Simulated scan of single mutants.
Amino acid sequence: MTSVEPPDLESSGRLNRGLRRIASASGIDAILRATTEAAQELANATGLCAVPNDQTHCLIATADGVATLSGNTALQRLIASAADGGEAIVQHRPHLEVELPSRRRLLAETLLTVPIGEESGFVGLAFFWRDGANPSTEQLASLPALAWTSCLALRTQQHAGELRECRAEHRAHISELQHRARNVLAVVRSIIRRSGNTAESQEDFASHLEARISALARTQGALTFHEQEGPELEDLVRAELAANAVREDQVVIAGPSLRLAPRAAEAMALTLHELTTNALKFGALMTPEGRLTVSWSIESIAAPTMRWRWIESNVQVAQTSPERRGFGRELIERVLPYELGAVTSFTITSDGARCEIELPINERTTARMQRA
Rank of each mutant, 00 (worst) to 15 (best):
R263C: 01
I192W: 04
L292Y: 10
H173K: 00
R182I: 11
N197S: 11
L241M: 10
R238C: 03
H173A: 11
I191E: 05
L270M: 14
Q250D: 11
Q228P: 04
E227R: 13
L258M: 15
F205L: 13
I192T: 15
T287S: 12
E234Q: 14
V294R: 13
V188R: 08
A261H: 09
A261I: 08
L260W: 02
L236E: 05
D204K: 03
L280E: 07
L241I: 13
P262L: 05
T198W: 11
A254H: 13
E234G: 07
Q178I: 07
I174K: 10
V246F: 03
A243P: 09
F205P: 00
E169V: 05
L280Y: 04
D235L: 09
L163F: 02
R263Q: 14
A267V: 07
P262F: 03
F225M: 04
I192D: 10
R212A: 02
R218V: 00
P256C: 06
G290W: 10
S300E: 14
R259G: 06
E229P: 00
R189S: 14
H179A: 13
E169M: 06
Q220Y: 01
L177I: 13
A269L: 02
V237M: 08
E266M: 12
S201V: 06
S257P: 01
E203H: 09
I253T: 14
L280M: 12
A284V: 08
I191H: 08
Q220F: 04
G221E: 14
R263M: 11
L185G: 01
E169R: 12
R193L: 15
L236N: 08
E266N: 05
L272S: 06
A261Q: 14
D235E: 14
S201Y: 06
V237C: 12
L233T: 09
E176A: 13
D249Q: 11
A284R: 02
E299W: 02
E210I: 03
E169K: 01
